[in-house]
Amino acid sequence: MLRITELTKRYGDHAAVDSLTLHIARGEVYGFIGHNGAGKTTTLRSVAGIQSFDSGSILVDGTDITKDPIGCKRKMAYIPDNPDLYDFMSGAQYLGFVADIFGLGKEERTERIGRYSEMFGLTKDLGQPVSAYSHGMKQKLAIISAWIHEPGLILMDEPFVGLDPVASHTLKEMMREFCDRGGSIFFSTHVLEVAEKLCDKVAIIRQGKLIRSGTMDEVKGDDSLEDVFLELEAKND
């Protein structure tokens, strides 16, 4: 579903992402972990088509993001680490806007928005302006907006930050169910316990370079993911 090959992004002399290669197949929940500033957000933004990169290629379902960005964006959804949404819209208007962009019909949008907002307990707040939402509510709204058009690939940058335990649990279930139905999820997280339980595969990035990737068993073996991560960090210091 997503094939990243030799991706490199530089800011001046500093390589934020350095020759990164990853392949995310259909049905996989793929975790992306690394220290702050490791290059996770840059990678996700490049895949989402909102940031240019210097070299390498990104294929979404076989389509090159640089050649057909609109086609790629139709197949995926992106949730940033800090979802700044339109303050001048209500939650319902925002979801309606996203539904319009993806050309969702009246019945399907009503059904999906109703279903997902119920799951996150956001139904009664949909009429409120986004400016009145808490961080967690904005995060829930961004998640719903990503799910309503049923993309093939969902990119998420720290999706659990700001969510209450119930919403966190709901999101994990949604992620698993989404991938079980053939979708793919590529997400970054610092919560290693979540990554360990949820992910089919995981990649560890350090200073822009991929230092380990594979199935959860391949990466961590008999240790915990936290132990492996700390060990790799220490080794590369």
């Binding site: 209500s90 319902a92 319009d100 949008r109 109703g114 949909l126 009429g127």
Partner: peptide
């Protein structure tokens, strides 16, 4: 005081109306 933190009466009804991409 959060500005506009009052109920918007239309609520979820705002999602039902469909528009073209240009219209949206």
């Amino acid at each position: 005081l959060s500005p506009g933190a009052k109920k918007n009466l239309r609520g979820a009804a705002d999602t039902g109306r469909t528009r073209t991409v240009s219209g949206a």
